[in-house]
């Protein structure tokens, strides 16, 4: 299956909510096909009385082409090798950041292609990103607070040690 980009529309936006059924004509622009087996043709002939249904549901989700999946897989494997290789070199505090950056690139590939987010209704991406943002907020403030009071704890432990000895 080789996907061809639709003309002048950048990428196919799957028309998701049923309330936009009336705009299903807009989907005619998109040339991605959801199925093309003879079995499907057989199914369609069984349901041929329901023309509206078969055309509306003919492609309500984009199919990720096989070459794209394989390319992403190979990229992920390479990045995994890279992240392990990075530990063979001592780069001080940069090691953890390099590891996290590589992990983020891998994660982005999985999310965009394996999880279809690239071809999906944008709101699903909003959902995903809002989870990450909330998490970052939580970690940032908890980290800020806990690192700021560590000196107080150490001072207290020191005092207790001195008092004990």
């Amino acid at each position: 299956m080789i996907a061809r980009r639709s003309r002048g529309r950048g990428r196919c936006r799957r028309v998701a909510p049923a309330m936009r059924e009336r705009n299903s004509a807009a989907c005619g622009d998109c040339e991605y096909q959801a199925a093309r087996s003879s079995r499907r043709k057989k199914e369609m002939s069984e349901h041929s009385h329901d023309k509206h249904d078969s055309s509306a549901s003919a492609h309500y989700a984009h199919v990720v082409p096989l070459p794209v999946l394989l390319a992403v897989f190979i990229a992920l494997m390479l990045l995994t090798f890279l992240t392990v290789a990075a530990t063979w070199f001592d780069l001080g505090r940069w090691n953890v950041w390099i590891a996290l950056i590589i992990a983020t690139i891998k994660a982005a590939l999985v999310v965009l292609y394996f999880m279809h987010l690239r071809y999906d209704h944008p709101f699903n991406a909003v959902v995903f990103l809002s989870a990450l943002l909330t998490l970052l907020l939580f970690i940032a403030l908890a980290l800020l607070d806990s690192t700021t009071y560590q000196p107080d704890i150490r001072a207290l432990q020191e005092t207790m040690r001195n008092a004990g000895s």
Binding site: L137, L141, L144, D145, T148, Y149
Partner: peptide, 16 residues
């Protein structure tokens, strides 16, 4: 954004 206001006397830092 505001959960720390339950922790003003808990040992939370003044900055937070």
């Amino acid at each position: 954004l505001v959960w720390g206001h339950h922790m003003f006397v808990s040992g939370q830092t003044r900055l937070a």
